[in-house]
Design a protein around this nucleic acid. Sequence first.
DNA 1: ATCAAGTATAATGTCAGACATTAATTTAGA
DNA 2: TCTAAATTAATGTCTGACATTATACTTGAT
Lengths: 252, 252
Amino acid sequence: MKNVAAKSANRTAVNSIGDALEALPSGSTSRDVLDALSHMIEANGLTVGDRLPPEIEIARRLGIGRAKVREALTAWQNMGLVVRNKKAGTRLAAEMSSNAIHLPLTLKLEAESLLRTHAVRRPLEIESARLASRNRTDRDCRIIAARVAELMASFEAGEDWRPADHRFHGAIQEASGNPLFNQLIQQIQAAFNEIYEAPFGQPHLGENTIPLHPELAEAIVAGDEGGATRVMSRIMDMVEAEIRKVIGTADV
Amino acid sequence: MKNVAAKSANRTAVNSIGDALEALPSGSTSRDVLDALSHMIEANGLTVGDRLPPEIEIARRLGIGRAKVREALTAWQNMGLVVRNKKAGTRLAAEMSSNAIHLPLTLKLEAESLLRTHAVRRPLEIESARLASRNRTDRDCRIIAARVAELMASFEAGEDWRPADHRFHGAIQEASGNPLFNQLIQQIQAAFNEIYEAPFGQPHLGENTIPLHPELAEAIVAGDEGGATRVMSRIMDMVEAEIRKVIGTADV
DNA sequence: ATCAAGTATAATGTCAGACATTAATTTAGA
DNA sequence: TCTAAATTAATGTCTGACATTATACTTGAT
């Protein structure tokens, strides 16, 4: 019975893709293929568990080779967005894996994932600040001082201070002596931005925390482990509060 | 001049892959291809910026088709681990890309130190314990209780308790309500094991910490945020101490 | 008529070969 | 010596074929 419903749903989907899948211009990238598919999925209201058209059909409609379609679908598969099955074809995956963030498809689902992403970033930032205040070299101190000055100047000039903020935190992670912190946080932050920038435009998230940054820099330079931990925690808490305010939810 | 050095490095790499790339058994998956390549990369000491052999060469050596090699490399490319270039071939990427949190190779390339890996795991474990003691459901409590019982039984029976330990920590991360913790820690731990098991054989790392685990479980079930944080911190500190003892180094 | 077993089929998975494209390298020329 | 054109070695793409397999269908027995 469930099969019957699924089957008819599939048929409508497959029959009506002509409306939404048009030939791509030449030189189109794998990303374009995914965008076209996203569009088709949305236009047809396909949901989790539904089948996509066969690869060969997609290729024909888009006017590209099957290899290109496969490459694109493989990307989604690796992100956990679709599962492929010999006879059953390619279906939208039962669950969106969290490190798979392809915007057109997942935007609606990802609001609270901003908080989740931040929740992971939080302890890493705090720990990196603690280690930085412990392991910093003279050179690190000079860089941190320069970066925080740069940040405050940018902030007070009313410019877009986020690149400077990014560099400042990068300097702290650098000073921690463990490159993994920088790597991980950078990736997490990139994922965050990918979710965030699109739906809400140009944000000023974290603006209230900027005045705290000189204090953070001082604590690290002074080697004050507890102070660095405390200030960074406060910064992270304030960022979290702002996220909640923006997306208007309360639960993690 | 830099070109010359790079070129000669490439040549040695390409010439010596015969040592490290052996034919795969049939039915091998794309993951196997990547594992074989990882192995080759490590065996030849390739680092960021170095070239991989041409796809067709890899395919020949592994006894598979070029399509399969391409699919595997595409996965890495999508994760930002490699960049491909028409004539220049495929190179290990200079920077890890954003939406991909694929740690195993990253860590292998970047972290020669177990301590660094552990240093990243530490704050994540502590935070997940804290969140678990805050967000746990009744169901989580039951699972945690069952897992810790299982762990202690396995430990006292003198068996290999590590799978049970793994499941216990997994239950805590589950209880935190944020699946990202589980994902990240699991990957970090996988990377750790990949580095660790090989050189030191069958370890009993963390054995001294097992008796602390019931206490940790109790704190979480009781909702004692401070207690959970404290115990998990102690566990992590002890693991770190044991790592230091094993590898006999002092520096992070 | 219902259920089980076997068969057919339609989709993905893989391979091979060819050609297109591009960027590094080499060569020719000013 | 420097610049520009030709070469070339790699990835990128297309096509067609075959392998594999999970589903869908058919057949047979109870």
